[in-house]
Amino acid sequence: MSFVFSKENLERIEALKSRYPSPKALLLPCLWMAQYQEGYISLDAIEVIGEVIDMPPMELYRVATFYTMFNLEPVGKYHIQLCKTLSCALRGKAQILAQLSNRLGIKPGESSQDGKYTLSQVECLGSCGTAPVMQINDRYYENLTPEKIDTILESLEEES
């Protein structure tokens, strides 16, 4: 198997085991660790986690496919997730999406050719007071305007 948890993650897993009544509780934490480590959750990782928490891989797989934040396929370096739910829609989500699509040359659900960006529309991000809002990887970007999109994308270009 090609997936191996990093030493640091293995230590975290051991520490977490003492925190819960059953190792099965570590399923979501382990999936997160695997996703951060590899960028996505591979089938190999699922097998390995199954051994760590003593759960058959299928039981893990069906859990992993239930939660929308787990990527079972690789995604772009920057995963842009634009909130599409009501408050954001009322505050101009459509223009933000248009701006993102234009700048990146991709539609929601697609990744840029260089694999750098993946664009998704997601349901309510719980940031309705600062709509429209998007998340790039773990960070929130709030009170978006088309101009702000330009600035954000430019800073990402510089970053890489």
């Binding site: 299928m58 039981e59 797989y61 069906r62 496919t65 239930f66």
Partner: peptide, 14 residues
């Protein structure tokens, strides 16, 4: 899952 405990089948997706 419960009878044969072989866990080949599961409901995936949401």
């Amino acid at each position: 899952a419960d009878i044969t405990k072989t866990h080949e089948l599961g409901i995936i997706g949401r």
